[in-house]
């Protein structure tokens, strides 16, 4: 197993003692097979117990270890050291306030996520005795891609619109609204539309597409938002017709 020494330049910010963020460099001897998260765990275990960052599953399922690695939003567990040089800069996700070191404050995202009602709104509630809500493979395929989101917020870090206009509901939440709208078991599109089709919703997106590029689960939020724009634009016109639209 080949090893090399890597310098990790990690952003530090401890609000009780640092007046502003600064970079601390750790030298770590790393096997080539490691990911950035392994290197951070080594630092935490062996070199500096005060370093704070979020992680859990180590297999790109939980979405906890999102951070900016050499300028690009990545999951630290999916960023292989073999793809980087001998000096790696690690920063918290952009566009969010820093809570401590690499930990960001995610309250804004949580509020936006809630605002799009990201859960099934069935036509009529069934009791458990009445059985499952059945779905064909084709109906599953209609939304499956958008259901892969793990709420890692890399797309918010990459989105220049979210950086410019913090009120923007943002890629992941809008893609999840689309995920439930496309679900054959769901009738909640009307209930979501007031948020989704607002100024702060899909219409703030200018289709830069960075969200889809950084998404570790290939959700393609930019594509989802474009699809919602089309259906919402059709709603806008049909809403002036008797009985039309989702107003």
């Amino acid at each position: 197993m080949s090893e090399r020494t890597i310098e990790l330049e990690v952003l530090r910010y401890r609000p009780e003692q640092d007046s502003e963020p600064w970079f601390q460099t750790y030298k770590v001897s790393c096997p080539e097979e490691w990911v950035v998260l392994d290197a951070l765990n080594y630092v935490k275990d062996e070199l500096d117990r005060t370093l704070s960052y979020r992680w859990s599953c180590h297999m790109f399922v939980c979405g906890s270890c999102g951070m900016v690695i050499d300028g690009e939003p990545k999951l630290a567990c999916k960023a292989f050291l073999r793809d980087y040089g001998n000096r790696i800069r690690i920063e918290p996700l952009a566009n969010f306030p820093i809570e401590r070191d690499l930990v960001i404050v995610m309250d804004d995202f949580m509020e936006k996520l809630e605002s799009v009602k990201p859960y099934l709104i069935p036509k009529e509630e069934k009791s458990i005795d009445q059985g499952e809500y059945l779905q064909t493979p084709a109906q599953l395929k209609a939304y499956k891609q958008y259901s892969m989101c793990i709420n890692c917020m890399l797309c918010y870090s990459a989105c220049p619109q979210y950086g410019l206009a913090p009120e923007f509901i943002g890629p992941a939440a809008l893609a999840l609204a689309h995920r439930y709208n496309m679900d054959s078991r769901d009738v909640g599109r009307k209930a979501r539309e007031d948020t989704v089709a607002s100024h702060e919703g899909i219409w703030e997106c200018s289709f830069v597409g960075a969200c889809s590029e950084v998404c570790p689960k290939s959700v393609d939020p930019a594509g989802a938002i474009q699809q919602v724009k089309l259906t919402s634009a059709i709603d806008y016109f049909t809403s002036w017709l008797p009985g039309g639209g989702s107003r």
Partner: peptide, 15 residues
């Protein structure tokens, strides 16, 4: 939240 009036302009933009 108020519905946006960007829709018709976006429609012309897309077309």
């Amino acid at each position: 939240m108020a519905r946006s009036h960007k829709a018709p302009f976006w429609f012309l933009f897309a077309a």
